[in-house]
């Protein structure tokens, strides 16, 4: 449809240690570094890809998960096109916190229509044998919270990582298409006119 490259901003959120940075690095550099430092501050990496004929540059943002650093990370939420809510399948607490991450994101990203915002849920560390969260539980949560796509990933052995990001892109593109139908005309003239006293139109 278009040949133009669009820039999409996605942000990885989730408890510390669930593997956000590892997922980002796996996807962008296709490496898994077991010696990776824990994240301090805010980082991002870019990745070009093509999804269904669309050229896309993904800008993937990764932050530090500790509560204390909230005021540092939240300003970067604005302008996100998609949010990857991440937990680790071997850490039940990280799964229970998904809802809080979602809330934090919606609040600080200032999402106007949260019901429609594309979230994708990642259950990471699929390679670990001692699971604390079952697929069914996770699926159910996704269903109940807005029918989010759910992927079980492993940054360590690369399972489903690329697939998940591609799905994120698809969701964003689908959103755009839906709104495109609403274009009334190509050009719209905007006139100032005195603002009416009532704030809402009946």
């Amino acid at each position: 449809m278009t040949t133009k490259t669009s820039l999409l901003k996605v942000i990885l959120l989730g408890d510390g240690g669930v593997g956000k940075s590892s997922i980002m690095n796996r996807y962008v550099t296709n490496k898994f570094d077991a010696h990776l430092f824990h994240t301090i501050g805010v980082e991002f990496l870019n990745k070009d890809l093509e999804v269904d004929g669309h050229q896309v540059t993904l800008q993937i943002w990764d932050t530090a998960g500790q509560e204390r650093f909230r005021s540092l990370r939240t300003p970067f939420y604005r302008g996100s096109d998609c949010c990857l809510l991440t937990f680790s399948v071997d850490d039940n607490q990280s799964f229970l916190n998904l809802g809080n991450w979602k809330k934090e994101f919606i609040y600080y990203a200032d999402v106007k229509e949260p019901e429609k915002f594309p979230f994708v849920v990642l259950g990471n560390k699929l390679d670990v044998t001692e699971r604390q969260v079952s697929s069914e539980e996770a699926q159910q949560w996704c269903q109940e919270n807005g029918d989010y796509p759910y992927y079980e990933t492993s940054a360590k052995d690369a399972t489903n990582v690329a697939v998940a990001f591609e799905e994120a892109v698809r969701r964003v593109l689908a959103m755009d298409e839906r709104t495109d139908h609403l274009i009334p005309t190509d050009t719209v003239k905007l006139h100032r006119k005195p603002r009416s006293a009532t704030t809402c139109c009946s």
């Binding site: 009334p184 050009t187 719209v188 003239k189 905007l190 006139h191 100032r192 006119k193 603002r195 009416s196």
Partner: peptide
């Protein structure tokens, strides 16, 4: 800031 805008067929231009 909110304000109302009319619609017509030309380029949008608004100065605030």
């Amino acid at each position: 800031v909110e304000f109302d805008c009319g619609v017509s067929g030309q380029d949008a231009e608004i100065l605030v």
